[in-house]
């Protein structure tokens, strides 16, 4: 698994496309920080925070799902997977080795881009608050990790890179873009008292929603969600809030893992 991890990581750093991510993050964050130069205190849940959260939610899940799904679909397509099958590598070792390799590559390039943007922001004289910066950073890391894994799972389902691309975009569109519209449409069909519990279930099912709400609560913005979510906001805000995230993520990974492990094992057997 360690070998797979390192090899994945090594291949990534040697691809030129990998460094386009760096340029992307530097441009995105520097522009966002510079745009806010004239605004008062860049801290807490403000317009700036809202905008950054939304841009991250547009970009990160899509890119990470594409990266994740391509990395598997590519090996299926070019025969590397069949080659690997001749070696004594177990399916979980393959999956998680690749996963950790991708996480390392993406978090490192994101960290670098984020660090450079912070430096640019500081040089430009924008008062950036440390705690606020760290929360945005952690929010991005969580999105990277969760959606890379989701992307890899998509990669195991599809056969070609083209399919990987379409499915990734479709999932992104469902989980991010059309999520409120879709939920509202569906919830119109259920009796009113069911709306609240179903909204909560939906929040747990969609990791982007879970992370978005979790971090908005960390920015002290939880009260905007209203009475129905008071208990959830209270839980996230309390000392056990981060523990909830730590429990949520493994459960989520476990639940998602069922499909790729099953499919890979079946493919290997073929």
């Amino acid at each position: 698994m360690v070998n797979l991890w390192l090899s994945e990581w090594k291949t990534m750093t040697r691809q030129r496309s990998y460094y386009t991510f760096l340029i992307l993050w530097v441009i995105v964050f520097s522009l966002l920080y510079l745009l806010e130069k004239n605004n008062p205190n860049v801290t807490g849940f403000t317009n700036t925070t809202g905008t950054i959260v939304n841009i991250l939610l547009y970009l990160l899940p899509l890119f990470m799902m594409m990266t994740g799904s391509f990395s598997i679909a590519n090996e299926m397509e070019n025969g590397q997977w069949h080659l690997l099958c001749t070696y004594p590598v177990s399916v979980p070792a393959y999956l998680f080795g690749k996963f950790f390799g991708l996480i390392t590559a993406q978090t490192v390039v994101f960290t670098l881009g984020y660090g450079i943007s912070m430096a640019i922001g500081l040089v430009a004289g924008i008062p950036l608050e440390l705690n606020w910066l760290l929360l945005i950073y952690f929010f991005s890391l969580m999105l990277i990790i969760v959606f890379l894994y989701l992307g890899m799972s998509i990669g195991t389902i599809v056969n070609t890179r083209w399919q990987a691309f379409t499915v990734s975009v479709a999932v992104w569109f469902l989980l991010i873009m059309i999520w409120p519209t879709a939920l509202i449409t569906v919830l119109r069909l259920v009796p009113y008292p069911l709306i609240e519990p179903l909204m909560k279930v939906a929040m747990i099912v969609n990791p982007a929603e879970f992370l978005r709400i979790f971090f908005i609560v960390q920015w002290d913005g939880g009260s905007i969600f209203g009475q129905s979510y008071d208990s959830i906001v209270g839980l996230f805000q309390s000392g056990t809030g981060w523990l909830v995230l730590l429990i949520y993520l493994p459960i989520y990974f476990g639940a998602v893992s069922v499909i790729p492990l099953f499919l890979l094992m079946r493919r290997r057997a073929q």
Binding site: G50, V53, N54, L57, Y58, I176, M177, I178, W179, P180, T181, I184, I195, E196, M199, M203, E209, R212, I213, I216, I224, F225, G226, Q227, S228, Y229
Partner: peptide
């Protein structure tokens, strides 16, 4: 009021 959860949602 439950839809307040969508406040500032990217979608």
């Amino acid at each position: 009021p439950e839809y307040q959860l969508f406040f500032q949602h990217p979608g």
